[in-house]
Amino acid sequence: MDKVCAVFGGSRGIGRAVAQLMAQKGYRLAIIARNLEVAKAAAADLGGGHLAFSCDVAKEHDVQKTFEELEKNLGPVNFLVNAAGISRDSLLVRTKTEDMISQLHTNLLGSMLTCKAAMKTMIQQQRGSIVNVGSIIGLKGNAGQSVYSASKGGLVGFSRALAKEVARRKIRVNVVAPATGNCILS
């Protein structure tokens, strides 16, 4: 069976590094980002056989459409990486409500929607792997990042619960919590 990996947020940063590693391991990749041209460039850098898609993970219709297209062109997804994320750092009292909503929708709801879409195929296959990219900030918190911390902390709880829901179907769900060099933790 083909090894197909969908990397949401795969055009830069951690997502791009994961995509490079998965390509080296023989996966056919779907590089997904909001900006299609950037996603195409990232996919082209990996060599042949990889495709690029544009998707706003905060929109369920976009996510569903993206999964339909990528599975039509690459085959069933058996590995999902959720690396799409945004940060709008600010003290809570200065944070605009629309910035709160966009962080929660992209960082938490987006991963929920992509996992939900991937589950359909993974349950049928009775196998699959999901890696959600969180942050150490979601575990420890950081001044000026309360909303970002909430979104990434929610991702940890979601991932743990989903792992318990689908373990008997031989689907693994993990969350990684990298630290960034520019944050100070207590």
Rank of each mutant, 00 (worst) to 15 (best):
I31L: 07
I32E: 02
A43R: 11
A33C: 11
Q20F: 00
A19Y: 00
A30H: 01
D45A: 15
Q20D: 05
A52D: 08
R28E: 03
L51D: 02
L36E: 12
R28M: 06
Q24N: 08
A43K: 12
L51I: 12
N35G: 06
A42Q: 12
N35E: 10
V38P: 04
H50C: 10
G49H: 05
Y27L: 09
I32W: 00
A42N: 11
I31K: 03
L51R: 14
A33D: 08
K25T: 04
R34Q: 14
E37G: 08
R34G: 14
R34L: 15
L29H: 01
L21K: 07
A30M: 03
A30Q: 02
H50E: 06
L51V: 08
D45Y: 01
A52L: 11
G48P: 12
A52C: 09
M22F: 02
E37H: 10
A19K: 02
G49W: 04
A43L: 14
G49S: 09
L51G: 04
A39G: 10
H50K: 07
K25D: 07
A44M: 07
L21N: 03
A52Q: 08
Q20S: 08
A33W: 05
G49P: 10
A52S: 09
L46Q: 05
Y27V: 10
A30T: 01
L46V: 08
G47V: 14
L36W: 03
L21W: 00
D45V: 06
I31M: 05
M22R: 01
M22I: 01
G48F: 04
K25L: 13
L51M: 12
A30E: 01
A23S: 10
G26V: 06
L46H: 05
